[in-house]
Amino acid sequence: MIVLLPPSETKRPGGDGAPLDLAALSFPALTPLRSELVEELVRLAADRPASRAALGISAKQDDEIGRNAALRGAATLPAIDRYTGVLYDALDIGSLRGAAAARARARLAVGSALFGLLRADDPVPAYRLSAGSKLPGRPGLATRWRPLLEPVLADIAARELVVDLRSGAYAGLGRVPGAVGVDVLCQHADGRRTVVSHFNKAHKGRLARALAASRAEPDDAAKVAGVARRAGLHVERDGAHLTVVVPES
């Protein structure tokens, strides 16, 4: 089983790994576009106004442009340690030990606008590029990634069950045939259900932790739902789609 996570806008700075080596990353079929995008971001960083427009950031976030300028020489961290924020706090991979930690690092993968797809331990620098970023004079990232990324995802899905926790924009970079999809809904006292916004990420992080660390080897949506329920989540299943239902607080 592979649990496919979204990335995060926020990333842990620094690192103690060697500088970025694209040839050392998993899924070498993605290397050509990774190389193009790194080159484009480094060049773009020389023009701060253009960078702000392309990346959708303000002048207060110019340190993000500096990260892109330093992409080739900056220290790296394993991808699963690089990304931060609500989902990754709930996942809390650093608290796992022994066999559970090893299973998690083998099962977790991250979708990325810059790298396409990363295994948990792939070493990457901090950077700024989102699925919706518009690089000057270039097609959208989904248009560029799909021809390379979808065959890689299809190959993974042919061998392992994929639980896709990516948000819509990142799922649009490459679809996964037969993947288990997940939504998070809030159950109100009057019976209404509404989309959970901010805490959607926290509940997906809890689900990712349960799946990544479990001794079970689920091979279909029903078994994924079983792992989630044993972890205390209220999950409903409709075919290959799961809904995590959260009571109104």
Rank of each mutant, 00 (worst) to 15 (best):
E160K: 07
P49Y: 09
R34L: 10
D63C: 02
R209W: 01
L165R: 12
H188Q: 12
A23K: 10
G111N: 06
D81W: 01
E160W: 07
Y88P: 02
H188T: 04
A46P: 09
T76L: 05
A69H: 04
R82Q: 09
E150D: 06
H188Y: 15
L4R: 07
D122M: 14
A171V: 02
T10D: 10
D183K: 09
L165G: 03
S26Q: 13
V3H: 01
D238W: 10
P177E: 12
A113Y: 11
V246F: 10
D155N: 07
E9A: 01
R175K: 12
D16S: 07
R12Y: 02
T84S: 08
L20D: 11
A79G: 10
E39C: 01
P13G: 02
A189Q: 14
P136Y: 13
S133P: 13
R103P: 05
R105K: 02
S58F: 01
Y127H: 14
K204A: 02
L4Q: 01
S133T: 06
P123T: 08
A74L: 01
F199L: 11
L91P: 04
G98K: 01
P78D: 12
K134P: 13
Y170N: 04
V184K: 07
L5V: 00
V38Q: 15
P247C: 09
T84G: 07
L165S: 03
P177I: 00
V3Q: 01
A231L: 12
G232E: 14
G205H: 00
V196Y: 14
A24I: 04
L44F: 05
A18K: 07
P139G: 05
A169P: 07
V38T: 10
A69V: 01
E150C: 03
K60S: 14
R107T: 03
A216P: 05
D183F: 09
G181I: 03
